[in-house]
Structure formats: structure tokens, C-alpha cells
Amino acid sequence: MTNKIPNSVIGAVSSVLAEHYYSHSTLNSLFMESGAPGGVPEGNCETKCSSWLRRCNDDSTVDPMQVLGQVIQKFMDLEPDDWNQKIGPGQERIRASLAKNQLTYQMNGFITLAGASPAAKSLADFFKAGDFSSIEAEFERAISQVDRDPHAAITASSAIIEALCKTYIETRQLDMPTMQTIGPLWRVVQQHLGLNIDRTLQDDQKRILQGLASIVDGIGAYRTHIGSAHGRGIEPPKIVVSEARLAVHASHTIVIFVMERWLGAMRSV
């Protein structure tokens, strides 16, 4: 699969996102959070989207398809509703443009070849299958970005936790929180995780889980501040590489803990 974003896809995505978000600050935040390189391009919302996606194609330090997937993820994963009747047609326009270029969009921001083998799965598929090796590979990819782009590494690790929580909640048929951000999602999962049956150890485990909740909130805050364009101009806040690496490794620990608990519960059924 070519790593360049086709011109027709750039055109469709730029038009749809500009009409959906119609806000420069929101689009700035979206593209920065998704790892798009450089400062904010000039022009109206549609021109800005187009310029940033083309810049991704020209920058050898980024993966254009990965950025594209993250840029369109929030919009493509929305459920069409009567309140905003443009969501469905916009999603179909993007899917049609991808299909003309033998590409397809999958949940959680994955762009793959149309008709690709089942190996091209989403994060949700990995979690449901208990595919530890694939999740490890996702974290290895995040770690590989730390030195070059610590902001993108934190964004990736935060997205993995969010995908884990959403998949866990849906699979367990729990109530999805109204705010589907990392903090509220984690709190639903945390409350459902079984504690050690030994009462002496339950209190100890509660302390650890409370600590994990603080870590999750911190990672979510990192992502928000790094991705937010409000009050900081066009450059994201500086973050030391060691701090980003700590956040990614902490995310990895949380995800593997939940997966092990989840897989153990499934095996006992």
C-alpha cells in the first residue's frame, strides 16, 4: 500500500471536515493532535485541511496514512443521527473516495487496503481476541516515535487506552459514559474490574487502581494540552522525551493489566 494520501482523498476529506467542524481552532487541535507536521497553514478551513494533508505527503518524518486515519477517526466513528444529518453522507463521501483508491477505513483510525486479509484488524479486534502481540506492536510503534515526536507518542498511547476501555465496555455490555473521553471511560472499566478475593489485599489493590486512575487522567491531560490550540499559539507545549516515554510505558502497563484480567475472566467462563 502506498504511503501517500491520494489527491482525491485529500479533496474529499478536506471538504467534509471543513464543513463538519467549521472552526479553525478545532481543526488546528485535530491536526496537531494527530501528528501533522509544521505550523498552522494559511487559508480557510478547507484549504487548511488540504495543505496540512499534502504537507504530510511531503514530510519523510511522518506516516501520512497514520495521520490521515487519526484526523478522520473522530468523525468516521460517529453514529449518524437526526440532529446532524450531514454526518452519514460525509462519511460515505470519504469511504467512496478511499474505495476509488483501493483503500478502506476501519474503526479506531486504521486505513488499510480494500479487501486486505483479516490480519489488518482494528485495536478493538486485537482486544477482543486477546492478541497481546499486536497490542505490544502498537506500543512499540508509539515508543519508536518518542525521540522524534513525543507528542505523537503520547497521543497514540492515549488512543490505545481509549480503544481498550470502549471495547471492554461494549463487550461487557456496561453503560457507556456520556463523555467518552479517557477519564470517564477508565472509571467505568475500573469499577468493573474484580478485586483480589483476599480482604487484606483488596485495600492494597484499591490503592494501586487509584494510582492507575491518576495515571490515566494525567495521560489524558497530556493529550489534551498537547493537542489543544487554545492559549498557546501554533506550537504545542514542550515535553521532555523521558516524560513522554514514562507516559507511554505507564499506558502499556495499564492496558496489559486490563487485558490479562479480561482474558482470565473469559477463560473462566
Rank of each mutant, 00 (worst) to 15 (best):
A221C: 08
L68R: 02
A114D: 07
G183K: 11
S144K: 13
Q106G: 10
N84A: 06
I72A: 04
I182S: 01
E79T: 15
N28L: 06
V71W: 03
S60D: 14
T171A: 15
E92P: 06
L78I: 06
A156Y: 05
A120C: 13
R261T: 09
K86W: 13
P64A: 03
F75G: 07
K238W: 13
V40L: 09
R223T: 02
G39V: 07
D82K: 14
I239L: 14
R55S: 07
G233V: 05
T181Q: 14
G220T: 06
T178Q: 06
P184G: 00
D203R: 15
G130L: 06
V67R: 01
I234P: 04
A119L: 13
D203I: 11
S51T: 12
I169C: 11
A163W: 01
R223C: 07
G115R: 01
P236M: 03
F126D: 12
F126S: 11
E136T: 09
Y222A: 13
L193G: 05
P184M: 09
V240W: 10
L193T: 08
G88P: 04
S228E: 09
S214Y: 07
G90I: 05
A96I: 00
R223S: 06
R54T: 00
N84G: 01
Q73P: 01
S228F: 04
G264L: 10
H192I: 03
H252D: 10
Q191W: 00
V240F: 14
S228N: 07
T2W: 00
A137C: 00
A163Q: 00
R95E: 11
D125C: 12
G231I: 03
E79C: 13
V216E: 05
L68Y: 08
G211Y: 04
N196S: 11
Q106C: 06
S158C: 14
N3V: 10
Q85P: 06
P89Q: 07
T181C: 05
R232C: 05
I135W: 08
D63M: 10
L164P: 02
A142R: 09
Q210N: 15
H20I: 11
A163L: 01
H24D: 14
R95G: 00
G194A: 14
E19F: 06
I219L: 08
L78R: 13
F126L: 14
K206H: 13
E162I: 08
T167G: 02
S15W: 11
I111S: 01
D147F: 10
D147L: 14
D204W: 12
K121A: 12
Q205W: 04
T155I: 00
M76P: 04
Q70I: 11
G43L: 08
M176V: 13
G43N: 04
P237K: 03
M76R: 03
V16Y: 05
A152R: 08
D131R: 09
D77Q: 08
L212Q: 15
S157T: 06
D77T: 03
A142L: 13
G183H: 12
D217G: 15
D58I: 00
G130M: 04
T253L: 14
